[in-house]
Design a binder for these strands. Sequence first.
DNA 1: ATGTCGTAAACTGTAGACAGTATGCGATTT
DNA 2: AAATCGCATACTGTCTACAGTTTACGACAT
Lengths: 229, 229
Amino acid sequence: MRDSVTRQTLADQVFARVVEAIVVGEIEAGSPISENEIALRFGVSRGPAREAIFRLEAKGLATRVAHFGARVVDLTLDDLRSLFELREAMEGMACRLAAERITDAELVVLEESLRGHAVRPEVASGQSYYQPGGDQDFHFGIARASHNQRLFRALSDELYDVMRLYRFRSSLTPGRAIEARNEHRAIVEALRSRDPARAEEAMRAHIRSSWRNTQTTFRTQTSTSEPRI
Amino acid sequence: MRDSVTRQTLADQVFARVVEAIVVGEIEAGSPISENEIALRFGVSRGPAREAIFRLEAKGLATRVAHFGARVVDLTLDDLRSLFELREAMEGMACRLAAERITDAELVVLEESLRGHAVRPEVASGQSYYQPGGDQDFHFGIARASHNQRLFRALSDELYDVMRLYRFRSSLTPGRAIEARNEHRAIVEALRSRDPARAEEAMRAHIRSSWRNTQTTFRTQTSTSEPRI
DNA sequence: ATGTCGTAAACTGTAGACAGTATGCGATTT
DNA sequence: AAATCGCATACTGTCTACAGTTTACGACAT
């Protein structure tokens, strides 16, 4: 017994490290990635490297064309809008279901993550590549509390890392942190009173609010990055 | 120029055929599928077969365990509930967005599909493995009319085939067809008047209604299939 | 000088062989 | 007889080599 978890395959490891490299910006958005390049970089053959790139595509972190190659996605403002719309739908539903099904223990964890004291079993056990901060912990916890496995996996497999890809480069506009905290409080309050409709609407409002903030950040970014020397 | 579309890879072809075989029931739910078996069946090497199985997993049609193998999913009633909840969220949002963005031409196509006269560009051009009937055409059209690429792909890549897997085995309860048609009419009416909130709610109501019907079918199926001789 | 054609290079797609791992059956022991 | 250990088997994971495709560069003709 070498670990509590089955030994990872090379493809698993390569995939995890490439995702991290992309999200952190080590491999920059829009850059082409060849199987050989990945294989050499991590000292494996083309097989696992190829598999990792396929998974990148499934995760929405890269696009592929047959017989041609893959490149890291480069999100436009329109892409971000699409992502936030999808997120609003999915997290809204997750929050509604959580209001119906959340356990007292899960509720406690959520309330703790509001104070930045989150316990993160998924990350600790290596089930996820996702390393949440306070906000991300919070959303993760609600997704789990929905007790809907498909929904949870859809969110963590396909949305959270891509959001992270962008969020890593973005910053909060002034006052957004406090605003977000208040919205989180409203969500937890709805969950505590087990009010599905209110919980869903609170989450959707939160994500729309986050989208408005992101739009601003994006405009600022693109307008300030051009005149840089 | 051999086709209007880039020549498919072997993995593409194998994947498409396996999906079809699973959905149709030729490969039955819950049965294990080995890479060798697929490779032999379609006369290719293990490479493309392996890739096809990976994609099955991404699509939610199979589950895999490292070093062990894959098996076709066998949906429980709980899995179906999860799927319908996810679908309610995503299609609800798709319908809301469609109400804001649908073109007159797209609206015409939808109205035609209500009469069973649908034009299906995606299927005709081979971009999808999905062969919709009237109902499925309808939902497909709304997903497309959302003009949200991520949402559209999430629905067609991850949800529709799995739903099809189940739907293929299910039947309509008496009166459900008429009920569904009325719900479709309500949705189109909301779209025509460009009313996002009403459109979303109409779609969500439709899917909840479909879920209630499915539950009944499921119970009937499982209770009648046991005493079969 | 410009456009077109052909060739070469780089990459992906596929095949086949080898290595490693999990499972199940059978032999052995208690 | 039951339980446990070990071996054989079947499968997945990985590597290497080859084939096919696409792009890009350069030579040639106009």
